[in-house]
C-alpha cells in the first residue's frame, strides 16, 4: 500500500488540478504549464505526506516513510505523468486517424467514400493548424513567406530523426 497509494494519490490530485485550471483558463504554453503543474503537485503531495501522519495517527500506515517508499512513489508519479501528458496531446489536437473513424461511423449504413473524407479533411484542417502550432511554439519561424526551423526546432527533431534511422524506418506522418 505504501509503495502504490502515494503515487496514485498525487497523480489523482494532478488530474483534478489540471481539469479545474484548464477549464477556468487554458494557458498559452500548455505543455510548459503542465510540466510546472506536475512538479508543483508533486512538491505539495510530498510536503503533505510529511505533515499529515501527526493528525492521522495510526491511520497513516499507507503514507511513505522510508527512502525507498518515497523514491518509488516519485518514480510511479513521474511515469504516470509522462503517460498522462502523452494522452493529453491526443486530446489537445484532433488526430486524423480518430477523425476518419468518427466520420465513417457517423456515415452509418451508407458508409463514405475516399473523396468525401478528402473533402472534409483538407489542408486547412490537417496541415495548416499544425504549421501554426510550430510557429507559435517557436520551433519554426516565418521569414519573408518562408518557414525556417529554429534552433529549438532542430533540437526537438534531432532525436526523432536519429531514432528512426536506428530503427531503419522511413519518414512518418
Amino acid at each position: 500500500m505504501r509503495f502504490v497509494a502515494p503515487g496514485l494519490l498525487a497523480f489523482a490530485l494532478l488530474i483534478v488540478a489540471h481539469v479545474v485550471i484548464w477549464r477556468a483558463r487554458r494557458p498559452a504554453g500548455e505543455y510548459a504549464a503542465l510540466a510546472v503543474l506536475g512538479a508543483g503537485v508533486l512538491a505539495v503531495a510530498l510536503a503533505t505526506f510529511r505533515v499529515i501522519p501527526v493528525p492521522l495517527g495510526s491511520a497513516s500506515g499507507w503514507l511513505p516513510q522510508s527512502p525507498l517508499e518515497h523514491i518509488t512513489a516519485i518514480g510511479l508519479y513521474a511515469a504516470l505523468f509522462l503517460s498522462y501528458v502523452t494522452t493529453y496531446s491526443a486530446v489537445q489536437a484532433d488526430s486524423p486517424t480518430m477523425t476518419i473513424l468518427l466520420l465513417i461511423e457517423r456515415a452509418g449504413a451508407v458508409g463514405c467514400t475516399r473523396a468525401e473524407l478528402r473533402a472534409r479533411l483538407d489542408d486547412r484542417v490537417l496541415v495548416l493548424p499544425r504549421l501554426d502550432d510550430l510557429v507559435s511554439g517557436k520551433l519554426v519561424r516565418l521569414d519573408q513567406g518562408r518557414y525556417v526551423v529554429t534552433a529549438r526546432g532542430t533540437l526537438m527533431i534531432a532525436p526523432h530523426i536519429r531514432f528512426r534511422r536506428w530503427l531503419r524506418m522511413e519518414k512518418g506522418g
Binding site: 511515469a79 509522462l82 503517460s83 501528458v85 502523452t86 494522452t87 496531446s89 491526443a90 486524423p96 486517424t97 490537417l126 496541415v127 499544425r130 504549421l131 502550432d133 510550430l134 520551433l139 519554426v140 518557414y147 525556417v148 526551423v149 526546432g153 532542430t154 526537438m156 527533431i157 526523432h160 530523426i161 531514432f163 528512426r164 524506418m169 519518414k171 512518418g172 506522418g173
Partner: peptide, 23 residues
C-alpha cells in the same frame, strides 16, 4: 509513454513530419 509519446510521434505526428521536411 515510449510507444505513444515517442515512437508514435515519429510514426504519425504531423508536427514532427513538418519539422523533418523543414529541417
Amino acid at each position: 509513454w515510449y510507444v505513444f509519446g515517442f515512437f508514435n510521434l515519429g510514426e504519425s505526428s504531423r508536427r514532427i513530419r513538418l519539422l523533418v521536411e523543414l529541417r
